[in-house]
Design a protein around this nucleic acid. Structure first.
Length: 1101
RNA sequence: GGACGCGUAGCUCAGUUGGUUAGAGCGUCUCGUUUACACCGAGAAGGUCCCUGGUUCGAAUCCAGGCGCGUCCACCA
């Protein structure tokens, strides 16, 4: 072996050690020779933004510890690394950066360009993150690295969405959502944070009743007062109506009694604002009040606010209070009111609850799993944890989890941002041909409507007449499912309706409930109070056959297929001598050479778009243009010659003759392309439709270059965008300008190609929820998925238990009917010495990279593992890391010393002990090794590390090595101890242990990383331990005597022992283990001190 | 309002089925360069284990109540 330096210098070894591991291929379980049981962890993917912080360092240290431990124990360990695109977070960071650098906002770039730039930023971050994960020593399988926006994972996202949509677990609905107008997006309930603040609380005169509010600006149109049914103060008003002088003129108000009003808050009376409060919205649903938005998505008042329209919320509040004051409606204002303001967790802007149409995941909706099981996402998530399939460490979080799941509302998954997975739903273009009159239905009624069997009751006269054509709309999903004609209308009084209503498969408790149900179903524009005689209208329908209209039907088409991108170019070749017209199919006219050049130039530009295939029409110049493109783009066309043939020119061969035969004028009229007569034009569209269908089958997800002539381009444009004929004939494509379309149709309902993808993207946690299996190749049934899923452990910070863990459980339960992981290990947050959360803004953050440079990765890892217990926050500061650096150095020197004293080799079986000290250390080692094993298995990493630390330093180094200096002949035992100790430490401090292993045992010993964990341990020996303990006590007593009595180092201490016989070997140790003492059978002179031990005494002269 | 966690040496924290004299690191003090290590060694001082009561032969540990600190969830007209 090479001589080791006096101190361990991590910088000299870490990088090369990591490279050696990585090059060995053992991070990849496929290369592990053992046929052991798999053990897998999915790395919680760091955000593709910014840099690694201590939170990441903690998780890397803990997960690598487990991975290395189980790898040493012979399991086929897989640790999948990756990064998360972290939609809002990344977009915000990138947006700020772009604004700083270029002074432009996202809308100024446009969607495509902006996304491209955010992607660039994310990719740069990923490079940094990868390097930092490596610097921690994380032994993850880089060959399987994933990114949530990878094509494979995106496919998983689309697949999940489509399946959930198909089972009705994803729906579109108009609901109150948390809206951040600064980010311009909705937020999930748990992305909202609360900040306590002092605000004004207004007591306002609303007719005869005083109402309390902190938000007068939302109250412009309030018409309903809610009081508690038991509140005696307002009994007389319940059910009455008043004309109330209010902010903007007089409103007709009524009073409703409901338990949601709490008597103790404010005056006990409140007006409700359904559009801007979750509670009020629920009330409005319950009683059928209309929902009118006052605040818009731009954070300003809408036109519904009358003269206050356009004002920002804060301004509006002032103006409205002024107005109220002027009208004498302000009773008093409480200045000291404290409430929680909800703010965006990303940017801190105040959240507005707004009504908005969004996509939701239904957590309470039953669905069928397998043949018999009916369950809901919520039930499924509860069962996995409560039923014990998933173990939680520490288990107290089970309760938190249960509580959270129980209170869970439907999860809003659409976000109005650009960076992320675009929602895989396309809306069938306008509603031109659909009837304007709409009739809404509950889910349960739909089958009957379609069968033409149903009648439906309405409380409000829609002014429908017999014979009216109406659109049938699913009121839950707001999707159109058909058309029909009203065939009959009957009126009946409400008292005539039986409460049990078999037609709608419901039964009502009371007339009020029946009324409420009807109102909910169709909010009336005129208010109906308790004493109004309600008339119900019964309609019967004749449904029109579904999907036969052929128009744009507004249907949502949800598909996991990727759209085909079409890049459409007009042909670019002209003839050299324009006047001369040759017909007859064969080209005889010479080409304009400069035009040929232009085509080549454009071809090079097109090359950058990544075109997969080219299609063209059979017209001569068009086809020639396409040939030039094909020639230039050859590399990007499939290499296989047969494929190439197929990709190039679908019109070639098979279709060319047909078209020529059926539409000869397309050929002949090659110098101008007027839109042909309606008949042939429709025919062209029909043909294009068929052709697009075939493309869809053969080229899903690819980019096609279409080279066409004017008529073809117009037809395509109309098919895909739906412009009118007039608009089209005004539109003339020119060569060099590329049209780009996305193709996903045709609409399965009506056959239209005019499909527009939802602009929104998915909540980033939707893709994160799939992480454990999307990274293993799902929805394909891969070998990895079979072997490594469910993963064994999910190790993460407890603060994302809800964000992430719960969602993974739901998604996995639904999609795989499985659990995502067997155990959840939750670590705490890293705090500074004062217990404050580390953050950039507070400036108290420690940069892990800096610490690694200064103290080494091993020291940093130890400082985060020892003293860090599951579920508890822990404090970290530089002195602590320095302390563990000292330990790493101690370990280094222990092995260095062993190397200097003995001839070391790999020894895996316990040698025969020669002396008491040998028996003692082997017994101690045996205990520690089994303790460490058990503790790591039980997720008590800190205790394992601490015990090992104590053994290493205070038993092995402080005592046994000192003994070894005296006794000598320890080659075997030191070899054994070093071999095994390095293994035990390896999961904690991989770098220094691997380095020492290599330096000590050389190439032949292989890598420590894949050595075998000590399983066959020496027998423990209680007697030897007790005996050695006595010896230690005697030594300590002698040392204490010297220190207490200030005996100088030059003086020898004479001692004797009464009541016990020590053998010569033991006395030698006592005399020389830093006691500088001399034993004598009998003492001469005065006994200075006598120390009693159990069974014997130590006498000192 | 609901739930959870914490309170042990000056500081940071261990202490998983209740069991000798309650431990570690840092800091403080004393001594010490001896064929690994001064990123070291040998020692010392320092504790009402938050308080009160209970269970027990025995409680830092279990139970009840209180005090203090912190976190999460819900609500907040």
């Amino acid at each position: 072996m090479r001589e080791l330096s006096k101190a361990y210098l991590p910088q000299d070894y870490e990088i090369s050690t990591y490279q050696r591991w990585e090059a060995s291929g053992f991070f990849n379980p496929d290369n592990l020779t053992s046929d052991g049981k798999p053990f897998s962890i999915s790395l919680p993917p760091p955000n593709a933004t910014g840099i690694l912080h201590l939170g990441h360092a903690v998780m890397l240290a803990l997960q690598d510890l487990m991975i290395r431990f189980w790898r040493l124990r012979g399991r086929r360990t897989l640790w999948v690394p990756g990064t998360d695109h972290a939609a809002i977070a990344t977009q915000n960071v990138a947006e700020k950066k772009l604004f700083k650098e270029e002074g432009k906002r996202r809308f100024e770039y446009g969607r495509a360009e902006f996304v491209r730039r955010v992607n660039t930023f994310a990719q740069e971050s990923r490079v940094t993150i990868r390097a930092q994960i490596r610097s921690m020593g994380a032994s993850c399988d880089w060959s399987r690295e994933r990114y949530t926006l990878d094509e494979g994972l995106s496919q998983a996202v689309r697949e999940a969405f489509v399946r959930m949509y198909g089972d009705g677990l994803i729906y579109r609905g108009k609901r109150i959502v948390n809206w951040c107008y600064r980010c311009g997006t909705t937020l999930a309930d748990d992305e909202v944070e609360y900040k306590e603040q002092k605000t004004k609380f207004y007591y306002l005169k609303y007719g005869p009743i005083i109402i309390g509010t902190a938000r007068p600006e939302t109250k412009v149109l309030d018409k309903v007062i809610v009081v508690h049914p038991d509140d005696t103060r307002y009994q007389e008003y319940v059910g009455k109506e008043f004309d109330v002088p209010w902010i903007d003129g007089t409103v007709k108000a009524c009073v409703v009694a409901d338990k949601v009003a709490e008597m103790g808050i404010g005056t006990g009376a409140m007006t409700i604002t359904p559009a801007h409060s979750f509670v009020d919205f629920e009330l409005a649903q319950k009683y059928g009040f209309e929902v009118v938005g006052i605040i818009g998505q731009d954070g300003r008042l809408t036109k519904n606010a009358g003269k206050f329209a356009g004002l920002k919320v804060a301004e509006a509040r002032e103006k409205i209070v002024e107005e109220l004051r002027a009208k004498g409606l302000v009773e008093r204002i409480d200045e000291e009111y404290v409430n929680n303001l909800s703010v965006c967790y990303r940017c801190g802007t105040a959240i507005e609850p707004l009504p908005s149409e969004q996509w939701f995941v239904a957590v309470d909706k039953p669905f069928r799993q397998g043949l018999f099981r009916r369950t809901t996402l919520k039930k499924l998530a509860l069962k996995a944890v409560m039923g014990g399939s998933i173990k939680v460490v520490p288990d107290r979080f089970v309760k938190t989890y249960q509580q959270w799941i129980t209170n869970l509302h439907d999860w809003c998954i659409s976000r109005q941002i650009w960076f992320g997975h675009r929602i895989p739903a396309w809306k069938c273009g306008g509603t031109e041909s659909a009837p304007q009159l709409k009739m809404r239905f509950a889910d349960v009624v739909i089958p009957r409507v379609l069968a033409g069997m149903t009648r439906t009751y309405r409380i409000h006269d829609h002014n429908f007449k017999i014979g009216d054509r109406v659109t049938f709309e699913n009121s839950q999903k707001q999707s159109i499912f058909g058309y029909g004609t009203i065939t009959n209308i009957e009126r009946m009084a409400i008292k005539d309706i039986p409460l049990a209503d078999p037609l709608h498969k419901s039964s009502y408790e009371s007339l009020d409930e029946l009324l409420a149900a009807f109102r909910r179903h169709y909010p009336p524009t005129e208010k109906i109070t308790g004493d109004t005689k309600a008339i119900l209208y019964t309609y019967t329908f004749e449904p029109k056959e579904n999907g036969s209209s052929g128009g744009d039907c507004g249907h949502w088409y949800v598909t996991n297929q990727q759209p085909i991108k079409l890049v459409v170019s007009r042909h670019g070749l002209t003839d050299a001598n324009q006047g001369q017209i040759k017909i007859q199919g064969k080209r005889e006219t010479p080409l304009d050479e400069s035009a040929v050049e232009r085509v080549y130039t454009l071809a090079r530009e097109i090359k950058t778009l990544g075109v997969n295939a080219i299609v063209t029409s059979p017209m001569v110049r068009t086809r020639q243009t396409a040939e030039i493109f094909a020639n230039e783009l050859k590399l990007s066309i499939a290499v296989d010659e047969r494929l190439r043939e197929r990709n190039y020119g679908l019109f070639e061969g098979k279709l060319i003759d047909d078209i020529q035969r059926e539409h000869p004028h397309y050929y002949e009229d090659k110098f101008s392309y007027p839109i042909p007569g309606a008949e042939t034009y429709d025919e062209l569209k029909r043909r294009l439709s068929g052709w697009l269908l075939e493309l869809k089958r053969t080229h899903a997800g690819q980019t096609m270059l279409v080279v066409g002539h004017t008529a073809m381009m117009r037809a395509l444009r109309q098919l895909l965008l739906g412009a009118s004929n007039k608009e089209l004939s005004d539109w003339r494509p020119t060569f060099g300008q590329l049209e780009q379309y996305e193709l996903v149709g045709p609409c399965p309902k009506c056959g239209s190609w005019r499909m527009a993808q939802d602009e929104d993207t998915l909540d980033t946690w939707f893709s994160s929820g799939l992480w454990t299996f999307s990274t293993l190749g799902w929805p394909e049934k891969t070998r990895e998925l079979q072997a490594f899923h469910p993963t064994d452990v999910l190790e993460t910070s407890y603060d994302i238990l809800f964000f992430w863990v719960a969602r993974m459980v739901m998604m996995t339960g639904y999609l795989l009917r499985d659990i995502p992981f067997r155990t959840v290990y939750l670590h705490g947050l890293v705090r500074d010495k004062q217990g404050k959360k580390m953050s950039k803004s507070a400036g108290n953050g420690i940069d892990p990279t800096e610490m690694i440079e200064k103290y080494g990765a091993d020291a940093l890892r130890l400082s985060m593992v020892i003293g860090n217990t599951p579920g508890n926050d822990f404090k970290l500061y530089e002195e602590k890391i320095a302390g563990y650096r000292n330990f790493v150095n101690k370990l280094w020197n222990i092995v260095r010393f062993a190397n200097l004293t003995a001839e070391l080799k790999v020894v895996d079986t316990s040698p025969e002990p020669q002396t008491l000290a040998d028996r003692w250390i082997l017994s101690r080692f045996s205990r520690i090794a089994s303790l460490v094993t058990a503790k790591i298995e039980g997720y008590a990493f800190s205790e394992a590390g601490e015990a090992l630390y104590d053994f290493t330093w205070h038993e092995l180094a402080d005592w046994y090595l000192e003994v070894a200096k005296l006794e000598g002949g320890k080659d075997e035992i030191l070899s054994y101890l070093v071999t095994q100790l390095l293994k035990l430490w390896h999961p904690f401090t991989p770098f220094v242990t691997e380095t020492l292993w290599q330096e000590t045992f050389g190439e032949g010993a292989g890598l420590l990383m894949v050595a075998q964990w000590p399983e066959q341990l020496p027998a423990t020996n209680d007697a030897a331990e007790a005996e050695f303990k006595i010896l230690q006590d005697v030594v300590t007593a002698l040392r204490n005597f010297r220190a207490d009595n200030k005996v100088g180092t030059e003086d020898l201490i004479n001692f004797s022992i009464v009541g016990k016989v020590f053998n010569r070997q033991e006395l030698e140790l006592v005399e020389h283990l830093r006691t500088k003492s001399k034993y004598a059978e009998s003492l001469q002179g005065q006994v200075k001190k006598s120390i009693d031990f159990s069974g014997f005494s130590l006498l000192i002269v």
